[in-house]
Amino acid sequence: MTTTGVFRYDTKYAAPTREQRERYMKGDYEEHFFGPDNQIMVIIYDEAVYLKDDIDGTRVLFTGHKDKEKVMDEVRRRIDEHANKEDGSRSFVSGREIQES
Results as ranks from 00 to 15, higher is better:
68 K>G: 00
68 K>H: 04
68 K>Y: 02
68 K>P: 01
68 K>L: 06
69 E>R: 03
69 E>S: 02
69 E>Q: 07
70 K>H: 06
70 K>W: 03
70 K>C: 05
70 K>A: 08
70 K>F: 03
71 V>W: 03
71 V>M: 00
72 M>H: 08
72 M>Y: 05
72 M>D: 02
72 M>L: 07
72 M>E: 06
73 D>G: 06
73 D>M: 04
73 D>F: 03
73 D>K: 06
73 D>H: 03
73 D>W: 01
73 D>A: 06
73 D>L: 05
74 E>A: 11
74 E>W: 03
75 V>K: 00
75 V>E: 01
75 V>A: 00
76 R>Y: 07
76 R>I: 10
76 R>P: 00
76 R>M: 06
76 R>S: 10
77 R>S: 10
77 R>Y: 06
77 R>D: 09
77 R>A: 12
77 R>T: 10
78 R>M: 13
78 R>Y: 04
78 R>H: 04
78 R>N: 05
78 R>I: 14
78 R>S: 10
78 R>Q: 13
79 I>T: 03
79 I>N: 01
79 I>V: 15
79 I>K: 04
80 D>I: 09
80 D>R: 14
80 D>N: 13
81 E>D: 10
81 E>M: 10
81 E>G: 02
82 H>N: 10
82 H>A: 05
82 H>D: 06
83 A>T: 13
83 A>P: 03
83 A>I: 09
84 N>I: 10
84 N>P: 02
86 E>S: 07
86 E>H: 04
86 E>G: 00
86 E>F: 05
86 E>D: 10
87 D>K: 15
87 D>F: 08
88 G>A: 12
88 G>Y: 04
88 G>W: 04
88 G>T: 08
89 S>W: 10
89 S>K: 15
89 S>P: 00
90 R>K: 15
90 R>F: 11
91 S>W: 04
91 S>N: 11
91 S>F: 03
91 S>D: 10
91 S>Y: 07
91 S>K: 15
92 F>K: 15
93 V>G: 04
93 V>Q: 12
94 S>A: 08
94 S>F: 07
94 S>L: 11
94 S>M: 08
95 G>N: 13
96 R>C: 05
96 R>P: 00
96 R>E: 15
96 R>H: 11
96 R>W: 13
96 R>D: 14
96 R>V: 13
97 E>N: 07
97 E>W: 04
98 I>A: 07
98 I>H: 03
98 I>Y: 05
